[in-house]
Design a protein around this nucleic acid. Structure first.
Length: 417
RNA sequence: CUGGGUGUAGCGCAGCUUGGCUAGCGCGCUUGCAUGGGGUGCAAGAGGUCGGAGGUUCAAAUCCUCUCACCCAGACCA
């Protein structure tokens, strides 16, 4: 992508009412735009990041046997009456009326769709276990959206639903997904600061698990055992004066944001929708279910909260909108030719490049913008570097740069990814 | 929903207390000249009717009433 054509606008000044770092940086660097409270557009830069996060999640969900499908945002009110969530969730439920007064719900989640759907497919123990997932838009009328992407009314969510013949099988798969979640957060660069956190559970299981990333921008409090590192949330803490795992140590209190959670739903939804299967012994039994969610936009915000400095965002390579940011300073036709060729050749190697070809901007301004946008590798091409048939390469995470021969730049980058 | 705060140009703000010339500033944008490795300099321009509606007044960004929106804290939250 040539930067002169990129659909974005840098804002030099921070809004006085913006509190969270990720909110400020994502807006200022042109990743997102606020349409109204809790509702954002993803500009090209932001959408590239979102799609990278999506790819990481999709890959891992396919690995645990999830089959990808797509369910509608628009849902019939009747299904929500059946589970009583039309009442239980009424504060966050968007409802719309269609022609003839027909009432709809805009889906905040999809148990009310996936369960009746599964009923058309699952009949026998032979059909179990199975799991399906989607990455799709969710709508929740949050009472108070805040902190940019960390709490919003409309967002992409990955939701996986699993179906099992017995508790042991559900328990086993639940752990498989939990491990997969840890992998996802690690791949997004949050491995060290994201804790699988014990939380109180759904109706039929005692516990659920939240995945909490430590950050001051978070709105949750979690407690980490200093002895065994078990993390628990506030409710569990008030039920357990000592660590329920090691019976030992004190807890350390940390602010955190919930980037994912997993539940054993058991029969909570198979009951009202009468989702049953015929077991080996010929008896009809309730299907047991699990559900597993990750909010993609929130994860993106969390990644920025955890990866930034005074100059801007520092994207982990796995989710960065581009891997390389070429900045051409040399104004001669020779310099331009070399930059263009590098730009083309990098792309041929499937390396994503943002090429700053804006020769009317000062070097300093372009460097400042580059830091703000936060692409992992910055490659500067100037008369100075070209005298040595080289370009200058600098990683966003470091503050030292080095010269690399023009001819070996691609292999250098490939070696370091 | 409760409490607090804010709406003036694309962005960030001043002006409002003590109504009064054609509503200012910085950034950005346009044009020209210079500059060319950390938000470059000089000059000349374009752009707003002050969130919205109503009211008071000779006169309203400024005062009053209503209303909408956004932010922060709390409550709430698979």
């Amino acid at each position: 992508m040539k930067q002169s054509k990129l659909f974005y606008r840098i804002n030099k000044s921070k809004g006085s009412n913006i509190e969270s770092v990720s909110h400020d940086l994502l807006i200022r660097a042109g990743y997102i735009d606020q349409l109204m409270a809790g509702v954002y557009s993803f500009l090209p830069l932001g959408f590239l990041v979102l799609k990278n996060i999506e790819s990481i999640i999709r890959k891992n969900m396919l690995e645990v046997g999830g089959q990808e499908l797509l369910m509608p945002v628009l849902q019939p009110k009747e299904n929500w009456v059946k589970t009583n969530r039309i009442e239980a969730e009424k504060e966050i439920l968007f409802r719309v009326e269609g022609n003839g007064g027909k009432e709809y719900v805009l889906g905040p989640t999809h148990e009310e769709v996936v369960t009746p759907l599964a009923k058309k497919i699952i009949f026998s123990y032979r059909d179990l276990p199975l799991s399906v997932f989607q990455i799709q838009d969710k709508l929740r009328d949050e009472l108070r959206p805040k902190s940019g992407l960390l709490r919003v009314k409309e967002f992409w969510m990955k939701d996986l639903y699993s179906f099992h013949a017995n508790q042991a099988d559900l328990d086993k798969y639940y752990e498989v997904v939990a491990n997969s979640y840890e992998k996802i957060f690690k791949e997004c660069g949050l491995g060290k600061i994201t804790y699988r956190t014990l939380a109180s559970g759904g109706s039929f299981s005692k516990y659920s698990d939240e995945f909490q990333m430590i950050t001051d921008a978070g709105e949750d409090l979690i407690y980490i055992c200093k002895k065994c590192s078990l993390a628990i949330n506030k409710e569990i803490k008030s039920e357990n004066p000592v660590c329920p795992n090691c019976k030992g140590g004190e807890f350390e209190e940390k602010k955190a944001v919930e980037v994912g959670n997993i539940f054993k739903l058991a029969t909570k939804y198979s009951n009202p929708f009468d989702l049953k299967f015929t077991d080996r012994d010929g008896e009809d039994k309730n299907v047991l279910m699990g559900c597993y969610g990750i909010g993609l936009g929130r994860l993106m915000g969390a990644i920025v909260e955890a990866n930034n400095d005074a100059n801007g965002i520092i994207w982990p390579k796995s989710v960065a909108p581009f891997l390389v940011h070429i900045i051409l300073l040399d104004k001669t036709s020779n310099g331009k030719e070399i930059a263009e060729k590098l730009y083309q050749n990098l792309q041929k190697e499937d390396i994503k490049v943002l090429y700053d070809d804006r020769q009317d901007k000062s070097a300093g301004e372009r460097f400042a913008e580059s830091d703000l946008i936060g692409i992992p590798y910055r490659v500067v091409i100037s008369e100075k570097t070209l005298e040595k048939k080289s370009v200058e390469i600098k990683e966003r995470v470091s503050n030292s740069e080095k010269l690399v021969k023009v001819s070996s730049l691609i292999s250098y980058i490939k070696k370091n990814v």
